[in-house]
Computed example of a mutant assay.
Amino acid sequence: MPIEHRSTHRARRALARISFLTLAASALVVSAQAQAANLGFLNNTPITYMKQRDLQALNDAAQKALNTKQDGESLDWDNKGTGNTVPINGTVTPQSSFESDGLKCRKVELVAHAKGQTQTWMPTACKQSDGKWKLKKQ
């Protein structure tokens, strides 16, 4: 398989894996789907190095930040202990809070750093009746 095709295939596999997680995964998928016609832009970006346990670490950090941090206050996260040999870290920063359809919602900035590259996503999450934050459909 040519190197470029392997990278695109790896990016597609990464996107398929993340589509099943909650907030963090949804944010990554939404960001990527905007450019789904050409996944080459994902080559060598943090998302291509993230495995399911890394995404869960990001999701856990997002849930914690949304529950405990004020707007503009960041929570650091990393993938230590996930088993991934690629170190990945970043921040989760709630940006603004508001109500939508009777739910508390917050815009949140998710940042990931891996192998000298940085990716940023800005989804909106709303707190559900079960207490979990879920991505607001746009």
Rank of each mutant, 00 (worst) to 15 (best):
M1N: 01
P2H: 00
P2W: 06
I3D: 01
I3L: 14
E4Q: 09
E4L: 13
H5Y: 11
H5T: 13
R6G: 06
S7M: 15
T8Q: 12
H9Q: 11
H9R: 12
A11Q: 07
A11Y: 12
A11C: 11
R12S: 06
R13F: 13
R13C: 07
A16N: 10
A16P: 00
A16G: 09
I18A: 09
I18R: 00
F20T: 15
L21Q: 08
T22L: 14
L23S: 09
L23I: 15
A24I: 14
A24Q: 08
A25Y: 01
A25I: 14
A25F: 03
A27W: 14
L28M: 14
L28P: 00
L28T: 07
L28E: 03
V29D: 00
V30G: 03
V30I: 11
V30N: 05
A37E: 12
N38Q: 06
N38H: 05
G40V: 12
G40Q: 02
F41M: 03
F41Y: 13
F41V: 09
F41E: 00
N43A: 15
N43P: 03
N44R: 12
I47Y: 08
I47F: 15
T48Q: 13
Y49E: 04
M50V: 15
Q52M: 08
Q52G: 06
R53G: 06
L55D: 01
A62G: 01
A62N: 01
A62I: 13
Q63L: 08
Q63C: 08
Q63N: 06
K64N: 08
K64F: 10
A65C: 06
L66H: 06
L66M: 09
N67K: 07
N67L: 10
K69E: 10
K69I: 04
Q70S: 05
Q70P: 00
G72F: 08
G72D: 03
G72Y: 11
E73A: 12
S74H: 11
S74T: 15
D76T: 13
D78C: 06
T82R: 01
G83L: 04
G83S: 05
N84H: 03
V86N: 06
I88G: 02
N89C: 03
V92Y: 10
T93L: 13
T93Q: 01
P94V: 04
Q95F: 11
Q95S: 10
Q95C: 07
Q95Y: 04
S96E: 10
S97M: 09
S97T: 15
F98I: 04
F98E: 00
S100R: 05
S100W: 10
G102C: 07
L103M: 07
K104G: 11
C105N: 03
R106P: 09
R106G: 02
K107I: 12
K107C: 05
V108Y: 04
E109P: 04
V111I: 07
A112H: 06
H113P: 00
H113K: 04
G116N: 09
Q117F: 08
T118E: 09
Q119L: 15
Q119K: 09
T124V: 05
K127L: 03
Q128G: 01
S129A: 10
D130F: 02
K132T: 05
K132H: 02
W133G: 02
W133A: 01
K134T: 14
L135H: 05
L135W: 10
